[in-house]
Design a binder for these strands. Structure first.
Length: 828
RNA sequence: GCCCGGAUGGCGGAACUGGUAGACGCAAGGGACUUAAAAUCCCUCGGCCGUAAGGCUGUGCGAGUUCGAUUCUCGCUCCGGGCACCA
């Protein structure tokens, strides 16, 4: 023995097993058609330098699942890699005068070591880094395929610009008006950029939510809200003095008779056209200029409503009423048609706007038991009611009126039912260097030309110097930019934007199935075997961003024939944050706990155990140094027990002795009850905290029964079985110590190769249980009876109890409720 | 404002499907061992009354259903998260 079993020498134990496992490639897997697979995946990290407690928690949870499923006999794939493109590398490059690639790869090497120290059971042969050309080249291929299908396109729009990051952000990446990464308020900017048509999949992404029964309801709600489906109608209003019509979208066609004006987004093309040459022209131009600057600025604050008359009118196709057309700052160009029919009586925004500009209010929906009049209304009535003032439709309920009015608009050719989504197309251009180059060539003669597939990858040049301006060096790197047009062969320029790094994380889970495949992005037989991910684990902060993009990508790749599933992740576990002193660990708060320090002091097993024990995974975990010591104490206790009883444990007979004493039975029963409890906890909700509690209880009983105070000591085979249960049940959580003690107690097969223990329902049965006696719902006594004792007998026993009699005090017993094996409640 | 969660001892958290509230751990207090400390072991540990036996009370607040509610229903309060002029 190379170490001393008389104390818990975690450093030696962990090093021994880490080396053994890594050398033997214990966790390497291959597809085995016909054998049940299980794919456990944790969200891969950005190689920022060091792992933090959030990673430790995330990856430990995943590792327990992986090890548990292996013991259950599944063919488990458990890969790890690096989300290696991103802005921090460029910032670090500036700060440390290094290159993003160097910085990134050094971080990867360091962090890989940290993960290995935690004893995480990854198949390292599948490791990938998204910044390598053999990964991102396939992403460029996907982009070209999407471009060919019209799923990728370029347009000029107002985008969210983040000044410190010197780049554009997608809508999903703007949180309360600020950049998701650096928290600076974004500013609007007109720019050309590439977009992916995620909106083409809006309906499918929404419908798919209903089938994701393995996802937290909270995440699904967020996704549904983000997609934001609205059913309504599109209606065309003739514009006075013009041949074209003004098309609006409304979810309330039932209120059309109450429309008193129109509101247009300031950028709506009609705004400028209508005002041209009228006395409103200057006022409108001034208004548009002023509001445009604040457009799409999602600052969180709701600006005051404001508008201006355009000088034009249109006609209500139902009533012929002449409606003034306004430009209004609260109408969004990118939602619906950028134009709204204003019904002040039944829309709060229109009501406020009408008040501001003294526009008429016409109630057309009468709520039950109340009469609305324009004069008395103090706010819009947005609820249900019966139609009034609505011509032939008066008298209809609002819901049927929606249908009837839409139908009539359709029949008469000026409207139709329409569904609108809040979801916008995904802007994927980033004005950054450290990312995947967008494989596009701009030719003055031929316009936009995709890079031919045979020319892929477009490699990110590495011979660049990152300067302090924060601007991407690609934009000025002539030997990268200068190229020839694939269509005409003439001189042309490369696209200098790179992909949003969420592109890389949208399909990495599929690439793990075949990380070394060179003939294409995905090897179909491998992908078909391993996908979808059975259990995905990560932080809830990706509830929309990464998870929505991945669901989108999966469908696109399916439609391109690269894979055969609709949804990437069958089950999702969103783990809570690790907090300390009540708030998230952060450098600025000075409450950061470094995992490596802890591993050095207590060992990886202790760190793993505590992060599993302190809270159920979906909840926030309050870090507590003394709690870590408690976890360490528990492991030391187990190690000490095995060390002290090594001889007894090693030579104990494998067979149950014929005659079991009281102590034998107690230990035997508890052993099987513990196996049952832990199995259920790992199988169901991943409530590792209660699983660990159960093993602690078993350990406590083991100590109590074998300690000096104990009247009767269990026989060695039973002690051995209890210890075996403790080690196997704990193995997924504290693998090094469990494997070590397993080996030390004379097992020749490694614990890795052992199956998960089965419990014997007979052995787990209690031979005596406590039945509570209540009088009027209050506990007044207890009965010790055999399980399954008949109701009658329980009733007799309860009524005969002296103490209970005292509480009844001769009063007539009105009713006796007996719940077998639980309680007897006497009602007087 | 709207939509989701959540609230249990000094702390983290348990409690099956409505049936003994507080498992397990941490902290605290007392004790044993020790020259001493560490480590370890034992005891106590929601609150109030009581020497004790025991009693009363208690799961954010207020009602309700029930023989019985941490659990179900309704109405609040506070905390956390998401969305926020989406027509």
């Amino acid at each position: 023995m190379s170490y001393n079993l008389s104390r818990y020498d975690f450093a030696a134990i962990e090093e021994k097993w880490r080396t053994r496992w890594l050398t033997a490639k214990t966790w390497k897997v291959e597809a085995e058609p016909g054998r049940k697979k299980y794919y456990v995946l944790e969200m891969f990290p950005y190689p920022s330098g060091r792992i933090h407690m959030g990673h430790v928690r995330n990856y430990t949870i995943g590792d327990v699942v992986a090890r548990y499923r292996r013991m259950k006999g599944d063919n488990v794939i458990h890969p790890m890699g690096w989300d290696a493109f991103g802005l921090p590398a460029e910032n670090a490059a500036i700060k440390n005068d290094t290159h993003p690639a160097k910085w990134t790869f050094e971080n990867i090497d360091y962090m890989r070591g940290q993960l290995q120290r935690l004893g995480l059971s990854y198949d390292w042969d599948r490791e990938l880094a998204t910044c390598k050309a053999d990964y991102y080249r396939w992403e460029q291929l996907f982009f070209l395929k999407m471009y060919a299908k019209g799923l990728a396109y370029r347009k000029k729009t107002t985008v969210n610009w983040c000044e410190p990051c010197q780049t554009v952000l997608a809508n999903e990446q703007v949180i309360n008006g600020a950049c998701w990464r650096c928290d600076t308020l974004v500013t609007p900017r007109e720019m050309q950029g590439w977009f992916l048509k995620i909106t083409d999949y809006a309906e499918e992404l929404l419908a798919g939510c209903d089938k994701l029964s393995g996802w937290p309801e909270k995440v699904l709600t967020m996704q549904r809200n983000w997609i934001g489906k609205s059913l309504g109608a599109e209606i065309e209003f003739p514009v006075e003095g013009r041949s074209d019509r003004l098309t609006i979208f409304t979810t309330r066609p039932d209120t059309i008779f109450g429309a008193t004006f129109m509101s247009l987004a300031p950028e709506h093309p009609l705004v400028a056209q209508l005002s041209r040459g009228t006395e409103q022209e200057t006022a409108v131009a001034e208004f548009v200029k002023r509001t445009a600057a604040r457009r799409r600025l999602k600052t969180g604050e709701e600006p005051e409503k404001e508008g201006v008359f355009t000088g034009g009118y249109c006609l209500n196709p139902f009533t012929g009423a002449r409606l003034p057309i306004y430009a209004a700052n609260f109408v969004l160009m990118e939602y619906g048609t950028g134009a709204v029919m204003a019904v002040p009586a039944h829309d709060q925004r229109d009501f406020e706007f009408a008040g501001l500009y003294r526009l008429p209010v016409i109630p057309v929906i009468q709520p039950e038991g109340m009469e609305l009049t324009a004069e008395t209304m103090t706010q819009a009535h947005e609820g249900p009611g019966i139609l009034i003032n609505s011509g032939d439709f008066s008298g209809l309920g609002w819901e049927e009126a929606k249908v009837a009015i839409t139908r009539q608009a359709e029949e008469q050719g000026f409207g139709r039912a329409r569904t609108t989504y809040r979801l916008r197309d995904w802007g994927i251009s980033r004005q950054r260097y450290w990312g995947t180059p967008i494989p596009i060539i701009h030719c003055e003669k031929c316009g936009i030309q995709p890079v031919p597939e045979t020319d892929l990858p477009v490699e990110l040049p590495t011979d660049v110097k990152i300067d302090k301006s924060g601007k991407s060096p690609l934009h000025t790197l002539e030997n990268f930019i200068r190229t020839t047009c694939p269509a005409c062969g003439g001189p042309a320029r490369r696209e200098t934007d790179t992909f949003d790094t969420f592109m890389e994380s949208s399909w990495y889970f599929a690439r793990y199935a075949c990380p070394d495949f060179h003939n294409g992005p995905l090897r179909r037989d491998q992908v078909d075997y391993w996908l979808p991910v059975d259990q995905y684990i990560g932080g809830v902060e990706h509830a929309i961003l990464h998870l929505l993009y991945s669901r989108f990508f999966t469908r696109v790749l399916r439609d391109l024939g690269y894979l055969g599933v609709d949804e990437p992740f069958t089950n999702l576990l969103t783990q809570g944050m690790v907090i300390k002193d009540g708030s998230k660990m952060s450098k600025s708060k000075g409450n950061v706990v470094d995992p490596s320090d802890l591993i050095a002091r207590f060992g990886a097993d202790t760190v793993r155990l505590f992060s599993l024990f302190a809270a159920p995974p979906e909840r926030d975990l309050e870090w507590n140094d003394q709690g870590v010591e408690g976890a360490f104490r528990f492991l030391s206790r187990i190690q000490r027990f095995v060390g002290d009883n090594l001889e007894l444990l090693s030579r104990a007979d494998d067979h149950l002795p014929a005659g079991l004493g009281e102590a034998d039975r107690v230990l035997h029963r508890k052993t099987h009850q513990t196996i049952r409890k832990v199995s259920r906890d790992l199988e169901g909700d991943f409530h590792f905290n209660t699983a660990i509690s159960a093993v602690m209880e078993l350990t406590n009983i083991l100590f109590a029964l074998t300690g000096p105070e104990s009247k009767e000591t269990p026989q060695p085979p039973l002690v051995r079985r209890a210890v075996e249960a403790i080690l196997t049940l704990l193995f997924p959580m504290v693998p090094h110590l469990a494997a070590e003690l397993w080996e030390a107690t004379g097992h020749d097969r490694d614990l890795d190769a052992m199956p998960w223990p089965e419990y014997d329902p007979e052995a787990a049965k209690d031979d005596e249980i406590t039945v509570v006696i209540q009088v009027k719902g209050k506990v007044r006594g207890r009965l010790q009876v055999a399980p399954g004792t008949a109701e009658d007998e329980l009733r007799q026993l309860a009524l005969a109890d002296d103490k209970v009699k005292g509480f009844i005090g001769g009063a007539p017993v009105r009713k006796v409720i007996v719940v077998p094996d639980k309680l007897v409640n006497i009602v007087i």
